[in-house]
């Protein structure tokens, strides 16, 4: 019985949960401002959740976690920078950025999906390096692109856009502040959480339409799908299109909450962090649910938020970045070396 429970929760998820609980207890005993910490956890959760949810379509369609998420992310960055270039502010800027990002991201995802269909079985490796490549191509783009908004280019000359673009007064924390309230010193970023909930509901509905169901059939057994008259490649294509579109919108939401747009090398490892979050939530390389994505996002980001102040007090050094690297890559390694259940050997 206890064994069954352990299997259900999963060893990594259990360890991370216990660790998180331990850190919360430690933070409490050190007398750290818990309200601030909890609201930071909620914010980080909201910021990242759409980027993690973006993993679901490709996992469900059998293409594995989307290591090519940067294809979507850069589209989101283009959308966000265009909004500033056009001197938009407030919700106009946000909606404009998202409105541009989604079709761009979908298109990039479609192209990326065409590639994925030709490299079945090696999606992860190819996706990772294609993601890295596109990020470095975009570095050249940021350097050369004819942006002229003074908020984005270097003030005293120098080529191209700044490494980080401040969103102050444009759309900084727009969603976070929407309907936000404070209880016990904990600020709840209501708007951000509402948007997260909306994304979850939309994704949930989509996964229950005929197309969504077909995608999941294709992922769990491509041969079954073929025998049921489904075009496997078509649904994989839809999945990567959807995933990259979500990634594009996700980075805009992330940036507004963060208050900065990070350009150049910043998106390089973002896919890895999203992948590890969903894996921590208990997903495998073949199956993932919305709940797993949400739990994973909360655990992973919660841990990072709380580790920083606790480590600062406890050992006077910044261990949180190191921990992030170890945990995120450790969980991916764990998933890679697990015996595959089902899966397509072709």
């Amino acid at each position: 019985m206890s064994n069954g429970l352990l299997n259900k929760v999963g060893i990594p998820r259990l360890i991370i949960s216990l660790f998180l609980a331990f850190l919360v207890a430690a933070a409490f005993s050190y007398g750290l401002p818990m309200g601030q910490i909890f609201s930071a956890m909620l914010t980080r959760f909201g910021m990242n959740s759409l980027l993690v949810l973006a993993m679901i379509p490709t996992i469900q369609a059998g293409a594995g976690p989307n290591f090519g998420l940067p294809f979507g992310i850069i589209c989101g960055l283009i959308g966000a920078t265009l909004a500033i270039e056009m001197d938009l502010r407030g919700f106009t800027a946000l909606f404009f950025a998202i409105g541009i990002s989604i079709p761009l991201g979908a298109f990039a995802g479609w192209l990326y999906g065409l590639l994925l269909n030709r490299v079945k079985g090696q999606e992860m490796t190819v996706g990772t390096y294609m993601g890295f490549s596109i990020v470095s191509v975009m570095c050249i783009f940021w350097l050369m692109a004819p942006y002229s908004s003074p908020e984005m280019i270097w003030p005293y000359g120098g080529d191209g856009l700044r490494v980080t673009v401040v969103l102050d007064g444009r759309m900084e924390q727009l969603l976070d502040r929407f309907l936000s309230f404070t209880i016990n010193g904990m600020r709840v970023p209501t708007g951000l959480l509402l948007v997260t909930a909306l994304c979850c509901i939309l994704l949930w509905i989509f996964m229950r339409t005929r197309t969504g169901l077909a995608m999941s059939i294709v992922g769990s057994n491509p041969r079954f799908a073929e025998a049921s008259g489904l075009n496997v490649n078509k649904y994989r294509l839809i999945a990567s299109t959807l995933s990259c579109a979500m990634g594009a919108a996700g980075i805009v939401i992330y940036s507004q909450s963060y208050g900065f747009i990070q350009l150049y090398q910043a998106p390089l490892y973002m896919a890895l962090y999203s992948v590890s979050a969903i894996l921590i939530g208990g997903a495998s390389l073949q199956r993932a649910t919305i709940t797993q994505a949400l739990i994973g996002t909360f655990l992973f980001n919660g841990l990072l938020v709380i580790a920083l102040p606790v480590a600062n007090v406890a050992m006077d050094s910044d261990i949180s970045e190191i921990m992030r690297v170890i945990i995120s890559n450790g969980i991916i390694l764990y998933a890679l070396t697990r015996k595959e259940v089902g899966g397509d050997a072709r």
Binding site: L115, R118, V119, K120, G121, Q122, T125, V126, Y129
Partner: peptide, 9 residues
């Protein structure tokens, strides 16, 4: 990597 996976397929 892509070419290799492609050829193998």
């Amino acid at each position: 990597l892509a070419l290799h996976a492609w050829q193998r397929l």
